[in-house]
Amino acid sequence: MINDIGSVAWASVGHAYGPADDVPQWLRGMTSPDSEVRDKAFSSFYSAAHHQGDVYSCTVASLPFLFAMADDSSTPDRSRVVALLVSIGREAAERHGPGVICFDINGEQSTAHEDTAAIMRERGEAFVVYACNADAQLRSGAIPGLGLFLDDAERAVSVLQKQLEAEGGITERLLVVRTMADLALRLPAARKPARAWFDALADGVEVDADIRLAAIVQRARCAPESLDDTTLPTAIELLRQITPAPRHDNSGGEAGSRGPSGVYVHGRARP
Rank of each mutant, 00 (worst) to 15 (best):
I5G: 04
I5K: 03
I5M: 10
G6L: 03
G6S: 07
G6Q: 03
G6R: 00
S7I: 02
S7N: 14
S7R: 11
S7K: 10
V8D: 02
V8I: 13
V8G: 01
V8F: 01
A9Q: 15
A9M: 12
W10V: 02
A11G: 13
A11I: 13
S12F: 02
S12K: 12
V13K: 06
G14H: 13
G14P: 00
H15M: 06
H15W: 12
H15K: 06
A16F: 09
Y17L: 13
Y17S: 14
G18A: 04
G18M: 08
G18R: 03
P19D: 10
P19Q: 11
A20I: 14
D21F: 05
D22W: 11
D22P: 04
P24E: 07
Q25M: 11
Q25P: 00
W26S: 03
W26K: 02
W26P: 01
L27I: 15
L27F: 05
R28M: 10
G29N: 12
G29T: 10
M30T: 00
S32N: 03
S32L: 00
S32P: 03
P33E: 15
P33S: 15
D34T: 01
D34E: 07
D34R: 05
S35L: 06
S35K: 08
E36A: 12
E36Q: 14
E36K: 11
E36Y: 04
E36S: 13
V37E: 08
R38K: 11
R38N: 08
D39K: 13
D39G: 06
A41M: 06
A41S: 07
A41P: 00
F42I: 14
S43V: 12
S44Y: 04
S44C: 01
S44N: 12
S44L: 05
S44V: 06
F45R: 03
F45K: 04
F45A: 07
F45T: 07
F45Q: 05
Y46H: 10
Y46R: 11
S47R: 12
S47H: 07
S47W: 08
A48T: 15
A48H: 14
A48E: 13
A49S: 15
A49C: 11
H50F: 04
H51W: 09
Q52H: 10
Q52M: 11
G53R: 08
S57A: 11
C58L: 10
C58I: 10
T59L: 09
T59V: 13
V60T: 09
V60F: 04
V60E: 08
A61H: 11
A61E: 15
S62L: 04
S62P: 04
S62Y: 06
L63H: 01
L63W: 05
L63D: 03
P64E: 07
P64Q: 06
P64H: 05
F65D: 02
L66K: 05
L66C: 03
L66N: 03
L66D: 09
L66G: 02
L66P: 00
F67T: 14
F67M: 14
A68E: 10
A68Y: 08
M69E: 14
A70K: 06
D71G: 04
D72R: 10
D72A: 13
